[in-house]
């Protein structure tokens, strides 16, 4: 029986590789969901009724069902029902399917935060832009956007920190993220088996990474403190 200290280097190596996958999923989700959320927000605020109703319907479904189920459906549905496994096999396929699921899911949450942020900017700001001869897009980018960003940083920080931990859900389609890597040592891997501590140990990865994020997001909030 090895001691924990002896197991440590092997375990850390494995967990690091897993956490890299966690980080990849995290950043890809943010990269996709931040702009997609804006498109969805504009869709649900559209004055064209069918579009806004359709968008709200989609947001309702995505927010009303578990991400875990969405991921299972997105990953298995094309292969099982259409006999067309579009994601391909292996880790690449799982990562793609997980990314798509996360991006859609988080974009819907972000869209609601954006909507609140945009609607929270007083109507007078838009009118002031209009009477100064600005175009709609100038008003959005030069007047509304930064005020909206300031408003949404706190709720977005919340979602972003939740996202870090939600990446663990990708375990359900066997994405080899950090918890998957930890769990492997329970079943037996690289000469270690029946060890439960590596899985507990993964908590530190989340904790430290979220600590860094909290500091960075706090700084961003501070940076936007120069106006009210």
């Amino acid at each position: 029986m090895q001691t924990i200290m002896e197991q440590m280097p092997i375990v850390l190596n494995s967990l690091n590789a897993g956490f890299l996958q966690t980080l990849k999923l995290f950043f890809v989700t943010l990269l996709g969901a931040i702009p997609l959320g804006l498109i969805i927000a504009f869709g649900s605020m559209s004055r064209f009724k069918p579009l806004s109703l359709l968008t709200k319907f989609i947001v309702w479904i995505i927010r009303g069902t578990p991400l875990m189920i969405q991921m299972l459906i997105i990953y298995y549905f094309p292969g099982l029902v259409f006999n067309n496994p579009i994601w391909g096999g292996g880790e690449t396929g799982r990562f793609l399917a997980a990314s798509v699921s996360f991006i859609i899911n988080y974009a819907c949450y972000f869209s609601e935060i954006y909507r609140g942020g945009i609607q929270g900017v007083p109507k007078g700001q838009e009118e002031a832009g209009l009477v100064l001869g600005m175009t709609r897009s100038q008003i959005f980018f030069k007047v509304t956007l930064l005020q909206m960003i300031k408003r949404i940083v706190p709720p977005m920080s919340n979602e972003i920190i939740t996202l870090v931990k939600d990446t663990a859900l990708a375990r359900i389609i066997s994405l080899q993220e950090v918890i998957w890597a930890g769990q492997a040592f329970m079943k037996g891997s690289q000469g270690i088996s029946g060890a439960i501590w590596p899985m507990f140990f993964t908590a530190f990865y989340y904790l430290i990474f979220n600590g860094i994020l909290t500091v960075l997001l706090g700084r961003l909030e501070k940076k936007l403190d120069y106006f009210r």
Binding site: P122, G124, Q125, E127, A128, L130, V131, G133, M134, T135, V143, L146, Q147, K150, Y226, F227, R228
Partner: peptide, 19 residues
């Protein structure tokens, strides 16, 4: 947009751009 430029407009609530 261009037509509005005939007018300057001062609002009751100022509506300055805070940033």
């Amino acid at each position: 947009r261009k037509k509005r430029l005939h007018f300057g407009f001062v609002f009751q609530s100022f509506n300055l751009f805070p940033q």
